[in-house]
Design a protein around this nucleic acid. Sequence first.
DNA 1: TTGATTTTATCCGTGTTGCGGATTAATTCT
DNA 2: AGAATTAATCCGCAACACGGATAAAATCAA
Lengths: 403, 403
Amino acid sequence: MKTADPELMRAINRFHVMDAIRRHGPVSRVQICQVTELSATTVSAITAALLDDRLITSVPVGAVRDAGRGRPRVMLQLNPDAAHVVGVRLAPDQITVAVTNFCADILHTLSLPIRIDRQTAAVIADLVEDGVRRCIEDANLEMSGILGVCVGLPGVVERSAGVCRQSPIFGDRDVPLGAELTRRLGVPASIDSDANLVALAEHWFGQARDLNDFLVVSVERSLGLGILHNGELFRGASGLSPDLGDLMIGSPGNGGGRLADMASEISVLGETDAALPSGRGMALLLRRAEEGDEDCLAALAAAGEALGYAIANLITLFAPPKIIIAGRAMASSEHFMRPLRETVAALVPPSLADVTDLVTREWDDSIWARGAAAMTLRELYGAPWGTTGPAPLRALVELRDEA
Amino acid sequence: MKTADPELMRAINRFHVMDAIRRHGPVSRVQICQVTELSATTVSAITAALLDDRLITSVPVGAVRDAGRGRPRVMLQLNPDAAHVVGVRLAPDQITVAVTNFCADILHTLSLPIRIDRQTAAVIADLVEDGVRRCIEDANLEMSGILGVCVGLPGVVERSAGVCRQSPIFGDRDVPLGAELTRRLGVPASIDSDANLVALAEHWFGQARDLNDFLVVSVERSLGLGILHNGELFRGASGLSPDLGDLMIGSPGNGGGRLADMASEISVLGETDAALPSGRGMALLLRRAEEGDEDCLAALAAAGEALGYAIANLITLFAPPKIIIAGRAMASSEHFMRPLRETVAALVPPSLADVTDLVTREWDDSIWARGAAAMTLRELYGAPWGTTGPAPLRALVELRDEA
DNA sequence: TTGATTTTATCCGTGTTGCGGATTAATTCT
DNA sequence: AGAATTAATCCGCAACACGGATAAAATCAA
């Protein structure tokens, strides 16, 4: 039970100020007042403390001039060098590492196209450790300057415990990857579901910056689900992040089963008889579908319908204003998305027919790693009870419109 | 954006104190200190204010004697007469009204066994208004002494807007029942999903008092889902409460469809050819099943399997430590529950095999209405950001063990 | 060039809050 | 009756947010 004392009060307000600065780029103290609804005095005091801690910096005068009469505003921004963090994304066939600064700008990335699929946890931890150390070195930084590492991976992840309950990339269950990496790197290391990282990335940098509620469905080798609810990442009880692929779809033994076996890239590739090379398989399959190959079209359509079915159920449960379907290749194919959309439209309950906007988003690997970095920064910013929340851009927009 | 000022601070702590008093019956100030982790001074100040506002009362000295040496503790408890609220439950064949005091003790109930199914909203509002007025009168109270009314009903409900998007008891969509009843009764009236009311009732009075995360699945004429997450009732985006019956199960057109058409009491009754009278249908069906009637057994098993399928998916998403299956008749039949349990066990992902405890609970109608009353009280207590949360009974348990 | 104007940021005094330590209150034990 | 013990309150302190006054830094007008 969190008791409220002046310290908590300050923590909350400091977080709001930090969050306002992060979200609204270089921003003056008056603007922060409007956004946070804090008094000028309080904002002044808090920003002074933040400047003192070198968490923010004031933009050199003259850099930004806004046509006004009085004393010019001093713009404040996050101090990029206040901290450095590392984000890692583990995919079945690739490890991506990114080093970012305090603004979550990527300083350096490293991609290792390695099949880590079904490796032992020790081997994977080895690879991650190497990758992180190398990436830090390449960015001309020291391990001692890194404040945290976050690893995103598919599967069922219990962030609070740092344990991966189950994942397509681990043979074992209940891998304590968080503790292991913390030990190896000598730096706090956390883990999370990869879909959560993407959800956070979308919330911080992507197309959901002004949304407090949305879902991210990642369609890659495996299927992930990230839920942002009330401006917070939603995790199940005991902090568990779900694996969308574990959902049951259709009638088992009658063309149904786990979603992972019906709508993931792996399953689609497995459907077609054609022997497709493992690396470029999906690109090839999509091209064949484009050329009219019946098998490939059918496989894509079946996958789209299966995922559409699941998404309809997610809409029934969460009624989010937006769902972002995210993936590399398949998710951007109309042969996949059209059946998906049609299935969603057909199965969503009538009362929720129009609440959800379904969009696709293709991105590069670095987004994932950036999300992982953001996950660590989010904690550094020191959210007291959470509230990564977006919220009133309105105050700022109004300000801009005035000018 | 909620800015933190001393007022919020006080509100938070006052709520924690109120909540501790509500939860732990008559309780002394020292005990409140232990539970809330507030200082004795603060507790003293807050309880003094609460006593001054007549929200709590001190138990007459000598009533409770705990074998101690020093100055005896003065026990505090909610003042039952601090407020009165009304809870209403709308079911397809019945309206239940309950008047409770500030402790959520039921003072008087009224059950109207009326088929309101498919009536117009105006007629139903009429019936509710009459029921509420009569129940208040029978309890020897005045309308002016009622601080709020909450109505629970099946379907998709948007509490914040007071709108029922869709419900088996309304022919229309988007019924603004909240505003209508507020107008008629001259008292703040809210509406919510009936499953949410039960979830709250279980959290406050039932078997989930010490749980912060659990699901309630109500199995009656229709199917409801109440989610308690992090000590808070979970609602979808824009405050929408889902209708479990809207979930899709199995393959559509292949023995699958909406869960409401497969696992609700209505659907089970519809499955069997036997012409069953509408009122006692389920009781008769269960007796026949007990006697070995194949049709009835098959219908119950099919329903159990369908609901088990849905519950497995809910476990995948929420991983709650407990799911309470609640209902009148069917839910307590092993012919229904055994297939359900078996299906859940078979379909739940291996990594989540043992996280969820599945229990059933049969109750009388008044529980629902009591939950509705509690929903209003919850707001009167003035939770600042929510935190209906349970939490550390531990402090109290330790105390008791010491003695 | 100089003073008036305007906007921004800080300083000062006030009120509220929670807290630790001392104090008072109300019992039981000896 | 006095000592011991536990409960509740009182007092002084520090932290905080806030409103109003003040200082700072520019533009505008003569």
